[in-house]
Design a protein around this nucleic acid. Structure first.
Lengths: 115, 115
DNA sequence: CGGGTATATACCTCCGTGAGTATATATCCA
DNA sequence: TGGATATATACTCACGGAGGTATATACCCG
């Protein structure tokens, strides 16, 4: 019951997902491409599969893993209000930076601003 | 130098970011809203600030924290190729959006708001 | 100045997790 | 059938991170 966010916090798992973007791969493929031990790859794939990020099909002794969209879509949806936020504020930010660029810091003296 | 993904893997930190969407808040505000000890809140804010997710301004003895857009934009960018991927799987997309839809299905196709 | 408030830091503990080695399971082929 | 290949699981270890308590720091106001 880990959140999708926790799942993709792991760099190797993000790498796996990115690799699977182009085509499905076997555990051995990923092992070589990630330069990680086979059990580690298998365990990451287990986590990803339990969370619905990937699914596998069997071909002979191999298991071919491929992407599934749903969990990352949840992450994408969590970002929606933040996208609204930064599209609202980016203009103001640019204006602000622009002003800082032209006007030297003339305001009241700056004290310790290191919280 | 933790990745933005690791930062937002922590549920309390995501909660902080969501709260800051509506308005800036002091540590005490967040402490009450999260029901977390003050030092824990401060530590999460420290992590968020070091990673650029928030910034603070001083008002009397309080520190008011507000959102900064950049780090979440990086996350958003990482998702771009995956969005392309799942837009190829329109069936699953429709299913998912239908499930998310609060309004009972109107006749025929529905339209979903999208930024 | 001194007491009250607000926040940050130090220190400790506990738990989860990622990595590795060794082993089990499964499938193919000669 | 037996050996080779491919993947999964069991077990262990070490490290980091999140939480709490206690304390330091900073600012306000009477």
């Amino acid at each position: 019951m880990e959140s999708s966010f926790a799942i993709i916090a792991e760099p190797h798992r993000r790498a796996i997902l990115s690799l699977l973007l182009s085509s499905e791969r076997s555990v051995g493929d990923l092992e070589r491409e990630l330069r990680l031990s086979q059990p580690s790859v298998s365990k990451h794939l287990r986590v990803l599969r339990d969370a619905g990020f990937v699914e596998s099909r069997i071909e002979a002794q191999r298991r071919l893993y491929r992407l599934r969209p749903e969990p990352l879509m949840e992450v994408d949806e969590w970002l929606i209000p933040f996208r609204r936020f930064w599209s609202k504020h980016l203009d103001a930010l640019e204006q602000h930076l622009d002003k800082m660029d032209k006007v030297p810091p003339a305001k009241g003296r700056k004290k310790h601003e290191q919280p």
